[in-house]
Amino acid sequence: MKALWLFLLLSINVGAEVKAVGVFYFNPFLGHVHQSPARRSPSLTTIQCGHPLKVIEDPNVTVSDEWSYVSVADWKGFVWKKHLTTKRPDCFQSRYPKFYDALSLDLAELFYWGRLHDHWEEGVAKP
């Protein structure tokens, strides 16, 4: 009987598929796709404002309300939900591309700039 339950559970798990929720766009200036849903978790890749990300649902991956599970290029990782928008954002990089190029940010700067956006705590004094 136990073996039958185990078989049933396994077959349910195998049958469950990764589902695409939709395409979202990265909103901050720079940021990271994280290995796990935590602020300081290692970065899989650095992305910049306007980068499209496929938000996915995987029954084998549990995500809190604050994070989204995304697929980008060959990576599958986690991005703050608050950093995603449904419409392509009006990014600094696209408004001032030559100025941005002239900044000539190196890899370490790009990495830290992305990290910075993981650390900002944003709020508003609501009435």
Binding site: W120, E121, E122, G123, V124, A125, K126, P127
Partner: peptide
């Protein structure tokens, strides 16, 4: 946010590091 609201900075957005 609560302090800002108390002293009249309503709808003021902020970011902390």
């Amino acid at each position: 946010a609560s302090i800002l609201k108390t002293v009249g900075y309503i709808q003021k957005r902020f970011r902390l590091l």
